[in-house]
Write a protein that binds this DNA or RNA. Structure first.
Length: 529
DNA sequence: GTATTCTGG
DNA sequence: TTCTACCAGAATACG
């Protein structure tokens, strides 16, 4: 829409009493802001509205026009209809006039459908619509990535990689081995070195060389660790270092991701070009990458605020299990408390290993665990895993109740919902194929938990953004990573902004368990987290 | 274009 | 009996 928008439209665009309808209005906000035009007024984003009505369906204009209006947008696009604003009509291409008319009618249709669907209008008005402008600001703000420190780090990385590569070739006895080829690696590990004599070549013809499979063979040959090491280092280089130079804006020297607000099945955001929601943290080398994320101005710091165990707290709230709820209320180590229950020992006697098992079980439960899956992750016999799961459900009977009720709801209504009414439709819940149905059941159990967490942090972002602006702070939000908000903050605002963040994030909703937020600051994202 | 392999929550 | 934990994105190999 905005392409070539003349100044004549400024008054209309900035008139807050004029409703704006369209698709991906966040992009329009940014495009107009770049020309000094501040888009105002209620936003009716048909992509977002349709996303709430059915998050896993297509939200593309031509698909919606066909299904809601019976109009074929691409069918008979005549030549030269031009756009609303372009001076020079294109020879070919989409009919912008028809598209615009379709968007206006679609907006009406979708508003009607939302009004007829319990909870949708509130979700749109109180979460998705106000979030549009917040995300637009975050995208335009961007985050500073210090390319120099990334390059310094890359040098040492390349040396380490060369060493690992030589080691792999030597251990394989193959001087020309392409370490990047899963095919060649598979042949060496399974056919030449016979590291897993029991393994049989799968029908697909390719031996499994994924991290999980390989790490099981690690005690058979040092070549395994060398391969995994090499892969990890290469990942850092090829995904988080080499491409970043091209993402740094020549205008402000910062990296501007795109937040996708209408993509995931559960209501989470995603981030792309580049994805700043999967910057490494788990390994020593990976953490070096986070050190490059720094505040953009001297005297400013990075500040990170994250919800502590939000999904587990939500599970406790949703199932109402007294023990789990109490553990959170009393501020206990909930994994240790879980271990105490399922292993029938006092909390003080819980071993590190028992805690690790309980932690894995806690996460597994939220994802719809099976004894096979738990056995895989704990590297224990299935019988042991089954015993742990049985003990878990015996200790927390209301969790079993929650799971059964959620699956039943999916079967009866065809969808499950978050605390705020966001829906995920579970099409395969009645599938004949047991595997397909089992996946649908796991989706049904997980969606209310993951989705409610997504709703909560979205509300927090809206509240934090409003408070920062109302309070005249210079601090700004730069990233959201599912349960964490990252800001850059002038030194003198550190204390008040920390208080603001904790108050607004913890105060989004009152549950049967406390929502707690941990907040840290430092020169880099690594220090702040 | 799809599959594999990695990164994060 | 069957398959095997949820949600994502990017780079690369391979057919």
């Amino acid at each position: 829409m905005a392409e070539g928008a003349p100044e004549d439209f400024r008054a209309l665009l900035e008139d807050s009493s004029v409703v704006k309808a369209g698709i991906d209005l966040k992009a329009q906000i940014s495009a107009l802001a770049g020309r000094g035009i501040m888009l105002a007024g209620r936003l009716e984003d048909i992509e977002l509205m349709h996303y709430l009505l059915g998050p896993e369906r297509s939200h593309k204009l031509d698909v919606l026009a066909r299904s809601y209006l019976g109009v074929e947008l691409d069918a008979a696009a005549p030549v030269g209809t031009g756009s609303l604003f372009d001076d020079a009509p294109e020879e070919t291409g989409p009919d912008r006039v028809l598209e615009t008319a379709a968007m206006l009618r679609l907006s009406e249709c979708l508003l009607h459908e939302m009004a007829a669907t319990e909870g949708m209008m509130r979700l749109y008005d109180e979460i998705e619509e106000p979030l549009i402008a917040v995300l637009a600001r975050m995208e335009r703000t961007g985050v500073r990535v210090d390319l120099g420190s990334l390059r310094d780090f890359a040098e040492g990385l390349r040396r380490k990689m060369a060493g690992r590569e030589a080691e792999v070739r030597r251990l394989a006895g193959e001087p020309d081995l392409n370490i990047l080829s899963p095919k060649q690696i598979g042949a060496v590990l399974y056919e030449k070195l016979k590291l897993d004599p029991k393994a049989r070549k799968p029908k697909s013809g390719s031996w499994p060389t994924d991290e999980q499979t390989l790490s099981r063979l690690a005690d058979r040959s040092p070549i395994i660790d060398a391969i995994l090491d090499y892969r990890g280092l290469r990942k850092l280089l090829s995904t988080y270092i080499e491409p970043f130079a091209d993402y740094i804006s020549p205008v402000d020297g910062r990296v501007h991701t795109t937040f996708n607000q209408a993509l995931t099945a559960t209501g989470r955001l995603s981030s792309s070009n580049p994805n700043l929601q999967n910057i490494p943290i788990r390994t020593e080398e990976g953490r070096e990458i986070r050190k490059a994320f720094v505040a953009g101005e001297p005297g400013w710091v990075m500040m990170s605020a994250d919800y502590s165990q939000i999904e587990l707290r939500l599970m406790a709230h949703l199932c109402g299990d007294a023990h789990l709820v109490d553990a959170f209320r009393q501020g206990q180590d909930v994994h240790a408390a879980t271990a105490a229950k399922i292993f029938h020992v006092p909390v003080a006697d819980v071993t590190a290993d028992q805690r690790r098992i309980a932690k894995t079980a806690n996460f597994g439960i939220m994802y719809g665990i099976s004894s096979f899956g738990l056995a895989e992750r704990l590297r224990c016999p299935r019988s042991e895993a089954k015993q742990i799961i049985d003990d878990y459900f015996a200790s927390f009977p209301s969790i079993r109740g929650f799971i059964d009720a959620t699956v039943a709801q999916a079967r009866e209504r065809g969808y499950v919902e978050t605390l705020f009414g966001r829906r995920r439709y579970i099409a395969d819940i009645g599938a004949g194929n047991a595997a397909v149905r089992a996946l649908a059941e796991r989706n049904a159990v997980n969606a209310p938990i993951q989705g409610t967490a997504a709703d909560i942090i979205k509300l927090a972002m809206i509240a934090v953004d409003r408070r920062l602006r109302e309070g005249g702070f210079r601090s700004r939000m730069v990233l959201q990573i599912h349960d964490e908000l990252l800001l850059e903050v002038p030194q003198e605002e550190v204390a008040p902004v920390r208080e603001l963040l904790v108050r607004e994030m913890e105060g989004v909703i009152s549950l049967s368990v406390p929502l707690t937020v941990e907040c840290h600051d430092g020169k880099t994202w690594l220090e702040a987290h």
